[in-house]
Computed example of a mutant assay.
Amino acid sequence: MKGNTAIAISAGAPEWVEKRRYEHTTEEKKKLNLDNVARDILYKTLDKNMFSKIKTCATAKEIWEKLIQICEGNDETKENKLTVAQQKYESMKMRDGETMEEFDEHFSAVVIELTSLGKEYNNRELALKVMPTLPRECDVKTMAMRESKDLNKLELHDLFANLKAYEFELETRSEAGPLTSQPTKALAATTSEQFSPNTSKSAEQLSNDAMSLFVKKFGKFLRRSYNPSFS
């Protein structure tokens, strides 16, 4: 029974007829106002196509029930949607070039769809589904998480938060790699030059030249000492 109707006698048989506005009680006016607000909110969320399907509904409750029927369908339709969603879940894999943020959105959307259709997975099942779908670069991280964390208590958003942090760490190391390798190469080149045959030969030659010069000067000094007239 609608709140804004009353029994009236027409042609000897009782029937429900809509009350005139001034006949509404205070409580009925409040309910009617709330219904108007709810309908207005629902109308604003619908496009023209969907609005055409519910415009004959008299109350917000009728609109809502009609929308559920349209979106979810009957039992057979629900079953078909669930089958499709489960197939997407089972075939889920991180795509080439996909970031962890994108995979999080992709995976979570499928999980939400399954939940809306009545199929839910616990934390452990979700974690064990995500981990094998990741690239090999994440194997070390996923193995560590399996050993150090209780997967039954690891929420999906926490799982992806850990994976995003690890992805960032890998990217940071990758970017820093070429910079750290340059000094190493320079050091290797310097070391190679220091121990190359040509470099060693030059050093030996310099040592011999210095010794020859010293011997000549020392000989001249001795000759002057024993022969003062030597100039």
Rank of each mutant, 00 (worst) to 15 (best):
1 M>E: 08
1 M>C: 06
2 K>N: 07
4 N>G: 00
5 T>R: 14
6 A>K: 13
7 I>M: 05
9 I>V: 06
14 P>E: 04
17 V>Q: 15
17 V>A: 13
18 E>C: 13
20 R>C: 01
20 R>F: 05
20 R>D: 15
22 Y>M: 09
27 E>N: 07
28 E>A: 05
28 E>P: 03
29 K>S: 09
32 L>P: 05
32 L>E: 06
34 L>G: 02
35 D>I: 03
37 V>R: 07
39 R>M: 12
41 I>A: 07
42 L>S: 00
42 L>E: 08
45 T>I: 00
46 L>P: 11
47 D>N: 10
48 K>M: 03
49 N>S: 14
51 F>I: 04
51 F>Q: 04
51 F>S: 00
52 S>M: 14
55 K>F: 14
56 T>L: 01
57 C>N: 02
58 A>G: 09
59 T>L: 06
59 T>S: 11
63 I>W: 08
65 E>I: 03
67 L>V: 05
68 I>T: 06
69 Q>N: 06
73 G>T: 03
76 E>F: 00
78 K>S: 09
80 N>D: 07
82 L>V: 05
87 Q>D: 11
87 Q>G: 03
89 Y>T: 02
89 Y>G: 04
93 K>G: 07
94 M>R: 14
101 E>F: 09
102 E>K: 08
104 D>R: 04
105 E>K: 15
108 S>I: 00
109 A>Q: 07
110 V>C: 08
113 E>S: 12
114 L>K: 00
115 T>A: 14
116 S>C: 09
120 E>F: 04
121 Y>E: 01
123 N>Q: 06
123 N>E: 12
124 R>W: 12
127 A>I: 00
127 A>R: 04
128 L>Y: 02
128 L>D: 06
129 K>T: 00
129 K>I: 07
130 V>I: 05
133 T>F: 01
134 L>V: 01
137 E>I: 10
141 K>S: 01
143 M>E: 06
144 A>R: 04
146 R>P: 08
151 L>S: 04
156 L>C: 12
159 L>N: 00
160 F>A: 02
161 A>G: 08
161 A>P: 10
163 L>D: 00
163 L>S: 00
167 E>R: 08
168 F>P: 00
169 E>V: 08
169 E>D: 04
173 R>S: 02
173 R>L: 07
175 E>C: 07
176 A>L: 14
176 A>D: 10
178 P>L: 12
179 L>R: 15
180 T>D: 11
181 S>W: 13
181 S>G: 03
181 S>N: 10
183 P>K: 13
183 P>D: 10
185 K>A: 15
186 A>F: 15
186 A>R: 14
189 A>P: 01
190 T>S: 06
191 T>L: 13
192 S>T: 12
193 E>T: 07
194 Q>Y: 15
195 F>Y: 12
198 N>C: 09
202 S>F: 06
202 S>E: 10
204 E>S: 07
205 Q>M: 09
206 L>S: 11
206 L>M: 04
209 D>I: 13
210 A>L: 15
210 A>V: 10
211 M>T: 13
215 V>Q: 12
215 V>E: 15
216 K>P: 05
217 K>Y: 04
221 F>P: 02
222 L>S: 08
222 L>I: 12
223 R>S: 13
223 R>W: 07
229 S>W: 11
229 S>K: 15
231 S>N: 05
